[in-house]
Computed example of a mutant assay.
Amino acid sequence: MTPRQFTFADLRRILIEGAGEAEGVQLGQDKVDVTFADLGYESLAMLETGSRIEREFGVTLDDSEVIDAATPGDLIAVVNAHLAVPTAGTSA
């Protein structure tokens, strides 16, 4: 079974559901390497985003992992690293 992947589309949807979209910023794939600060998302919005990711994708993220992820690409990589680790009771 192929592990589930966390995509930019997933992140975009979760960010907008939890924190909205910053005025004047279109959160498109071209923003994958733009910092969350430049996109208008502060630490509280990122913690909410992390909580939503945990609930939807069944991973546990340290707050520091979410806050230290400077860009959408960084956060996508962090989540996918957690998704790649088999959980107890599953086979790789």
Rank of each mutant, 00 (worst) to 15 (best):
M1E: 15
P3W: 11
R4W: 10
F8G: 04
D10V: 08
L11S: 02
L11P: 02
R12H: 05
R13I: 11
R13D: 07
L15P: 01
E17N: 14
G18R: 13
A22W: 09
G24Q: 09
G28T: 11
D30F: 08
D30K: 08
V32G: 00
D33C: 06
V34L: 09
V34D: 11
T35P: 03
T35Q: 08
D38A: 13
G40D: 01
Y41E: 00
A45C: 12
M46Y: 04
M46H: 06
L47R: 05
L47V: 14
L47E: 07
E48A: 13
T49L: 05
G50E: 08
G50V: 02
R52L: 09
E54P: 09
R55N: 13
R55L: 09
G58H: 10
V59N: 01
L61S: 08
D63E: 09
E65T: 09
V66H: 04
V66D: 03
V66F: 08
I67H: 00
P72C: 09
P72Q: 03
G73Q: 05
G73P: 02
D74W: 04
I76A: 01
A77S: 13
A77C: 14
V78S: 05
V79L: 02
A81D: 10
H82K: 15
L83M: 00
P86H: 00
T87R: 15
T87E: 14
T87A: 15
A88Y: 13
G89E: 03
G89P: 00
T90R: 15
S91T: 15
S91C: 14
S91G: 15
A92R: 14
